[in-house]
Amino acid sequence: MLELVDLSHTYGSYRAIDRVNLKVAQGEVVCIVGPSGCGKSTLLRSIAGLIKPTGGTVLLDGKPVDGSPENLAVVFQDYSRSLYPWMSAVANVGLPLRRRGLDKKRRDAAAMAALEQVGLAGAAAKFPWEMSGGMQQRVSIARALAYQPKLLLMDEPFGSVDAQTREELEDLTLRVCAHHGMTILLITHDVDESVYVGDRVVVLSKAPGTVVGDLPVQLPGPRDQIHTRELDAFVRLRAEVGRLVRGMTPHRNTHGFGVETR
């Protein structure tokens, strides 16, 4: 459903990403991982139509992206800046639904349903600044869910919360997105997280970022923070991704995980 063809972007003379090619199928959860400064955010912003890439194309359902696509939502790392402090949680979640042409009653109903899914039904009337960081990011996730996008982009969504909240939010994301059959592109610098959350892990090189690895994750579901992370398959795959992120030569497919590298 999403296809990047030779996607490149330069800021002045700085080349952030260089000819990124990627295909994401409907319903897939793809994690993009890479060292800091590999142009991960540039990639995401190009897909979201927030910046116009200087080269290449983004195709969504076969159509080139021009401006912000209709069926797409973004969850940013910085929830405190991305939520509107003058609005309650339910108003924040309901705001994008104006684009769907819903009246207030139906917006509120959809927003409440989404807040319920992320376990915040009781906090609907609260304002973001009355909530913990984890709660605020749940509101951001609820906002994306309520919008019912076909493609959900997540930019380091769990980078600003404590470790325990992070695990909770990872599981929450997996659960609700499986439920909605959403396609997810999640950007992270955390190798562990990419393997735990993804159906596929795509590794970007240092800037100018380009795809250096594309690894399918074959782990038994449903995933579990303790058991999944102690599986041999998880540990090996994590090591493989870790090597790629650090720019080392990958082990050649010795463990049968279908590691493809270029």
């Binding site: 927030l50 912000s68 209709e70 939502a73 800046r81 991305s82 684009r99 919008y147």
Partner: peptide, 9 residues
């Protein structure tokens, strides 16, 4: 805050 709304179209 502005980009968030833009990303929703």
């Amino acid at each position: 805050a502005k980009e968030t709304l833009r990303s929703f179209g």
